[in-house]
């Protein structure tokens, strides 16, 4: 990015470097949301539907992990993916894939914990009907996740918000490499360290606008969906 440009100028002039950064941010955070949803939703549903010894402990831990510090996650993934680490041979450190892994770990507890609550509420409502229809455990989870889908969108948005906003994990495992692993948040951190606070703040507003746009799109989807599904 040219040194003297303001964030607004970058947006208006369609600066390709800025758009590559925006694209990567969305790609990494949305992929992490998809991965975390694939793990967190079924897990949350499973905890919601089952009763086992230590369940209260699992719920407390799950809720606590919502506050997982991104730096800690980043460091753990870094040590895992480093060439000297157990998964070093995969060569994933300093790639977008590593960033997706870190953000997935970061937001899976959020999605699991929030969806557990949502699905448990729906389960209390549905349990008799599903039992009467002789629906098995896998079918129950699928049904509850599907029927709670509009509430779960909010859960996924919470995960997306967290992923899109965090810098601690992606900067460690991605390395903030120009044109390759630089996201909105790591670019903001970089511009701040270069003392270009107006540009950093401007990029912050661009990030905010993107997050608002994603939320608006999801909200619209939810509204339209609820119209038809009741």
């Amino acid at each position: 990015m040219p040194d003297q440009a303001s964030a607004l100028q970058l947006v208006l002039s369609g600066d390709p470097a800025l758009f590559a950064i925006v694209r990567l941010s969305l790609l990494v955070s949305l992929s992490a949301v998809v991965c975390a949803a694939l793990i967190g939703l079924p897990f949350g549903a499973l905890v919601a539907l089952t009763r086992f010894p230590g369940r209260a402990g699992v719920i407390v831990v799950l809720n606590a992990l919502m506050g997982l510090p991104p730096v800690v996650v980043g460091l753990a993934v870094y040590l895992l993916l480093s060439r000297s680490g157990p998964l070093g041979s995969w060569g994933l450190l300093f790639t977008p894939a590593a960033m997706i892994v870190a953000q997935t770990i970061l937001i899976t507890p959020i999605i699991a914990a929030l969806s557990r609550q949502t699905i448990e509420d729906l389960w209390l409502e549905y349990r008799d009907e599903l039992a009467a229809m002789n629906v098995g455990p896998a079918g129950r989870i699928a049904t509850l996740v599907y029927d709670a889908r509009f509430s779960l969108i909010t859960t996924l948005l919470a995960g997306f918000g967290r992923a899109a906003a965090e810098v601690g994990a992606v900067i460690i495992v991605g390395g903030n490499i120009d044109g390759f692993t630089r996201t909105m948040t790591t670019a903001i951190a970089l511009e701040t360290s270069k003392g270009d606070l107006p540009l950093a703040l401007g990029l912050g507003f661009v990030l905010l606008a993107i997050v608002v746009a994603v939320n608006a799109a999801a909200w619209g989807m939810k509204r339209v969906g609820e119209q038809y599904a009741g």
Binding site: Y126, D128, M133, N134, G139, D147, A148, G230
Partner: peptide, 19 residues
Amino acid sequence: PVMLRRSVVGNLRYALAAA
């Protein structure tokens, strides 16, 4: 009775599939 959060046919199709 609890209606599934689906359309009328959605509810029936679900019950038929479950059966």
